[in-house]
Nucleic acid binder design. Structure first.
Lengths: 206, 206
DNA sequence: CCAGTATTTGACCAGTCGGTCAAAGGAAGG
DNA sequence: CCTTCCTTTGACCGACTGGTCAAATACTGG
């Protein structure tokens, strides 16, 4: 579990424990029902606390949601951040794909929390998308363009390449129900890693 | 008080017009806010009708939503349905990709309506996913397997191939906000068709 | 034109939701 | 034991939401 914490003022053990309980419960509830589809009662039940007690630790339902989102943003961008311009181009990108797919497998709730937010126009995340996300992407796009120019990878549109990586990997978390409905008994993550590796080798090989 | 919501009932022009108005408004509202995030007041305002008038044409908020979903399901599956086993394998699949992408461009609201539903576990669509969708997919997978066996296309996992087509094309509708935030001024659909064509040529060429 | 039917709406209701608050429990030091 | 501060909660509130209903208003065929 990525840890969600703002190292501001000192917190007692009880505060730390209950904040964690609440955020964990909120992740569960928000990711399954969306923001408006979730109620403080659901979250407090899930956390094993009373509703007024929730609001003792967080100012409002919105505050819980925002803390979740901002805490998760960093974790979510981390795999892209570690893309190493000095590494071998294709293995670097394949490793990024693999890491993203692994996150879909291990943290589907986090992925769905973002998906819920973005599908509905990202009202509480637009700034982060146009800011941190775009900056990081622009930075990494330069590297990818470079690899293309040097003939190390195929000449692909770098932005759309990143969109491909995001959509193909997060699909297994966000559309999990559909994937499983179609596959029947087969476990999605048995085949997905090899399949995606194959796909991106084909896309990237010059 | 006559029941007009029963199926197989002839509809007057007024009934037809108002039902259409309501469904159009509901599509707009539901796709932007999800089911629980939408209110009958929003929908009735959007439709230019009073709230009780909505409920004269539809039994409940749920009924509007269900009618939208079931009405859309067919449209959404249509491109896959027309996949022709007797056509040229690669052009057939590329045409399917192109049609799906075109639907994301022309009907983003419909795509987001589905996305909202599926991300939240598809409570009202599970049967359709495990039924109609799975049946159609199973049927088409046979064709794809066949093409693979005959060496007409590369040997790819047919289910995951379809997942790829869905995720890559619908991403441009469902994550539109994110795509545009990252691209800045560039119009996503200027590059997407050529990019995806290129990607699937690489994936499918034996 | 009229009777009967279809359509529309203002007023209203019961349940839910986010949030408040005063007061009741702790725990820890002195 | 008391005091002080932190934590917890039952009771409650106003706003909102899906839905009802009786009465008013338009339409339509005869």
């Amino acid at each position: 579990m990525p840890k969600i914490n703002e190292p501001d003022r000192p917190r007692t053990r009880i505060q730390q424990r209950n904040r964690d309980l609440i955020l964990e419960a909120a992740l569960e509830v928000f990711s399954n029902n969306g923001f408006r589809g979730s109620t403080l009662d659901q979250i407090s039940n899930q956390a094993g606390l009373s509703k007024p007690n929730l609001l003792y630790y967080f100012a409002s339902k919105d505050a819980i949601h925002e803390e979740l989102l901002s805490g998760l943003m960093d974790t979510w961008l981390d795999p892209l951040r570690t893309l190493n311009p000095d590494g071998e181009s294709i293995p670097e990108l394949l490793a990024y794909v693999e890491r993203k797919l692994e996150m879909s497998r291990l943290y589907p709730r986090e992925s769905r929390l973002f998906a819920n937010e973005i599908v509905q126009g990202a009202p509480r995340m637009l700034d982060a998308l146009k800011g941190d996300l775009k900056n990081l992407v622009d930075e990494k796009v330069i590297i990818i363009r470079d690899w293309s120019a040097q003939g190390k990878i195929a000449d692909v549109h770098p932005y759309h390449l990143l969109f491909s990586i995001w959509s193909l990997t997060q699909h297994y978390a966000d559309f999990d129900v559909q994937v499983r409905a179609v596959l029947g008994d087969e476990e999605p993550f048995d085949q997905a890693p090899a399949y995606l590796r194959d796909v991106f080798v084909k896309i990237l090989t010059p």
